[in-house]
């Protein structure tokens, strides 16, 4: 694995709303280097993820060197340098889910989506992450899609499950016109 977090294509610029929300976060924590984690957390809420330009703005606003901001962002799993999909899939690979077949579910998800864990599909619809223990060990293997929990998932159910979300996503888009 080389340069894991920097190789994605240049992200689209931030929207006006995102800029405004980011400005608020930075104003709130201006010149408070000790508040780096809180600021990054709120910046990620505002923008959805932490592209380089957001990290640089946080660095300048709080007075923290960019190298340190990037160190924190790449250390904590809760920070993402890649945009998340409309549907955020989290697959549990905790011990219980693992022994109940999570690796095979993951393999199928990656194949159906054409991406690896940690990535987002080209159409922005799905992102896939591996997480540790969702606290539903009795229901393993478990995945969550946004707030929905899907229990005792078998690899052969993956395609239809994704299809359902894909349809919902498309209707959503049409609905918004």
């Amino acid at each position: 694995m080389t340069h894991p977090a920097c190789c994605e294509a240049a992200p689209p610029g931030l929207s006006g709303d995102q800029q405004a929300a980011l400005d608020d976060v930075i104003e709130k924590y201006r010149n408070r280097p000790g508040a780096l984690i809180s600021a990054l957390h709120e910046a990620q809420e505002a923008v959805g993820y932490l592209p380089r330009e957001v990290q640089v703005r946080v660095a300048e606003g709080l007075g923290v060197p960019p190298s340190e901001v990037f160190g924190v962002v790449t250390f904590y799993a809760l920070f993402s340098t890649k945009p998340k999909g409309r549907f955020k899939i989290s697959l549990c690979k905790g011990t219980a889910c693992y022994v109940r077949g999570a690796p095979r579910v993951l393999e199928r998800l990656e194949r159906e989506l054409g991406i690896e864990a940690g990535d987002t599909t080209g159409d922005g619809l799905f992102s896939l992450d591996v997480v540790r223990c969702l606290g539903a060990c009795g229901l393993g293997p478990v995945i969550t899609v946004n707030e929905d929990v899907h229990a005792r998932l078998k690899p052969n159910r993956v395609r239809s499950l994704l299809e359902a979300y894909r349809r919902a996503g498309h209707e959503d888009r049409r609905g918004r016109g």
Binding site: P4, A5, P65, S67, E68, F70, T74
Partner: peptide, 13 residues
């Protein structure tokens, strides 16, 4: 006071 380099990523990476 330059901080050009830092520890990046986690674990073996």
């Amino acid at each position: 006071g330059v901080s050009a380099i830092q520890a990046q990523e986690r674990g073996f990476d």
